[in-house]
Design a protein around this nucleic acid. Sequence first.
DNA 1: CACAAAAGAATGTACATACATATAATGTTA
DNA 2: TAACATTATATGTATGTACATTCTTTTGTG
Lengths: 154, 154
Amino acid sequence: MGLEEDIKQRKFKSQYQKAGVNLAFTYSFMVNRNMRMLKKFGLTLPQFNILRILRGQHPKFTTVNDLIDRMLDKSSNASRIVEKLRAKKLVERRVSELDRRAVDISITQSGLNLLALIDKVEHEFYFGIDSLTEEEASLLNELLDKGRNMNETE
Amino acid sequence: MGLEEDIKQRKFKSQYQKAGVNLAFTYSFMVNRNMRMLKKFGLTLPQFNILRILRGQHPKFTTVNDLIDRMLDKSSNASRIVEKLRAKKLVERRVSELDRRAVDISITQSGLNLLALIDKVEHEFYFGIDSLTEEEASLLNELLDKGRNMNETE
DNA sequence: CACAAAAGAATGTACATACATATAATGTTA
DNA sequence: TAACATTATATGTATGTACATTCTTTTGTG
């Protein structure tokens, strides 16, 4: 089904305008799906994203600053999300010995176990896996990359 | 620049996995841009979206339920956003005479004037306007539509 | 008609984000 | 080294979302 029917509205002024709306709609579609899935594991999407970054670094420590660097949305609120994870004993925090301003964070065995469970349904995070060919998905990626490009120099 | 460099990380397991991440990253990129722009006009993105729906119906009234139907994200919190807009005198509310449960909402002249201002920079909401050809944008739209499709029957 | 079920909207709670500011530790430099 | 700037993180405030619940009004069925 096309976007116009999905959002029961209007003709678009251009393919570019439609692409903006389509991106938002499709993202929302995907995120709702992911949220429902993660909820079964007691995680929110940002909590899951941070856990995965920590696993990627494991067994090295990761500072809050590193987390912010690697997060997709560059939110500056990694502290609060880490605190939620710590409350669930999925991560541990300690003040860095090298720089006492910094906080070293690491995923716990419990956190690793939880991620291992979620790995089994990881394909649910993918986009288009049961409706696009691999070539189409690749083309989509190229178009998204290209579409961002000149926009960046605002 | 490709996604891997943008998020300084990993090889993806498939184009589908990459598409999921790319969608989130690209959406975040676009939304940040839109938010910065709207902020100059004293609006948030959801407030702007609701105002535009109201303008589309003007001079008819729109109920809160209608708003929820038409919002991209189907949030059930239209009430609170409407209240913010009412506080800025951009919309008016009145209990419907036909159905006293319903609340009729309409955009004010002040709201229309504000949207008219924003119309002048509307192209900033588009995606890819200065890096994709119209054909590429159209193809992107097709791929997004197609990618959502089978996923819907969860 | 009476009364239960449904519908429209609002509200409470937990979580998240953006942005500004605060706090503490570290770096820099006159 | 003392003063100031910078860095790493945390916190406060306004906004928004998801979800559950509540309140009122309307609808539907005996």
